[in-house]
């Protein structure tokens, strides 16, 4: 069965298969090339890049929870200069399709990042992270306010980033909202080529012996198989009202999990925390998708997108 096509088009980016990795779970893409050929993935999504390097939050930054983990990394990253100079050449040498995740503290910073990445060939698509839960001081309020929690802000940010780049632009949204359709539609209205969802769910874990939060940042973002049903439902909600594609993610750890997202309406999927458990998890999912198609007599994976029977 070599005539099965796994190829998809994610908002203008042609991917040879619908599997990428979630930003922040795969470093700058090249670290795991000794476990498997990372260019086998539909795309590699790099850790959030900011204009300046960031040291990130104080430790402890992670806490394990049932079927998942909380993190409060705080976007520790090398910054765009080091990325372009040191990481990018290796990714290009390996022939990877690159989705660059970006983080800024204003729409203009996002625009500058997108512009530089396009100008210097630093990405094949841009994923703007409007939804990191860990870069604000959680003590300040009941929870940080995210750009992705305000549809008006999502539309404004998207418009400004859109005007700075012609690369495929994805807007990464937060599940910490009442109705995911509102920010998703706002991203579409702002000119996004796709939406990426979901980022992590805000959560908290407490050590009852010390009575302290397990994370120094007090709260963090929950990921892993525990959040998968929430993510599938949000992809399903968003995909039904959008005309742009969805990059689905949240707790995918098996090929069957990935297929749930496709059936719910995702055009492509990202594998996140599962990589922590198995460094080659994303590649195994590519293989599993092929096997599933063979088993089901499907010759083009696009037949599965939004093919939920209900």
């Amino acid at each position: 069965m070599t005539d099965i096509s796994l190829k998809v088009n994610l908002g203008g980016l042609v991917m040879k298969n619908p599997v990428t990795v979630a930003s922040g779970t795969f470093g700058y893409g090249i670290e795991y090339d000794h476990y498997f050929k990372v260019s086998e993935l539909g795309a590699v999504t790099v850790k959030s890049l900011s204009l300046k390097p960031r040291p990130g939050n104080k430790p402890p930054r992670i806490s394990e929870t049932p079927a998942g983990l909380l993190n409060a990394i705080g976007l520790q990253n090398v910054g765009i200069e080091v990325y372009l100079k040191e990481k990018l050449p290796l990714l290009r040498e390996k022939n990877c399709t690159i989705i660059a995740n970006i983080y800024g503290f204003s729409p203009e910073e996002y625009a500058e990042l997108a512009q530089r990445l396009e100008k210097e060939g630093g990405a094949d698509a841009i994923e703007a992270n409007l939804s990191c839960p860990n870069v604000h001081d959680a003590k300040a309020s009941c929870g940080p306010a995210l750009v992705a929690q305000s549809p008006e802000s999502v539309a404004e940010y998207t418009r400004i980033i859109r005007s700075a780049t012609s690369l495929p632009l994805y807007i990464k949204l937060s599940p910490n909202v009442a109705d995911i359709r509102e920010p998703a539609l706002a991203a579409q209205e702002g000119g996004a080529d796709a939406v990426a969802l979901i980022n992590t769910l805000l959560g908290m874990n407490i050590d009852v012996e010390t009575r302290r939060p397990c994370l120094r940042n007090l709260v963090g973002g929950l990921s892993g198989p525990a959040i998968r049903p929430v993510a599938v439902k949000m992809v399903w909600d968003a995909a039904r009202v959008l005309s742009i594609p969805v990059l689905g993610m949240g707790g995918i750890s098996s090929p069957e999990d990935a297929i749930q997202f496709l059936l719910a309406g995702a055009t492509a999927v990202a594998v996140g925390s599962a990589t922590f458990r198995r460094p080659d998890a994303a590649l195994q999912i590519v293989k599993g998708l092929h096997d599933y198609c063979a088993r089901q007599g499907i010759d083009d994976i696009r037949q599965l997108i939004g093919a939920l029977e209900s």
Partner: peptide
């Protein structure tokens, strides 16, 4: 540790180095 192999940035400790990175 989450990944144990460099990508997740979860297991950091603070150093005495001045430089932010």
């Amino acid at each position: 540790m989450a990944c144990g192999d460099s990508v997740c940035m979860g297991c950091v400790v603070e150093t005495t180095f001045e430089e932010e990175f």
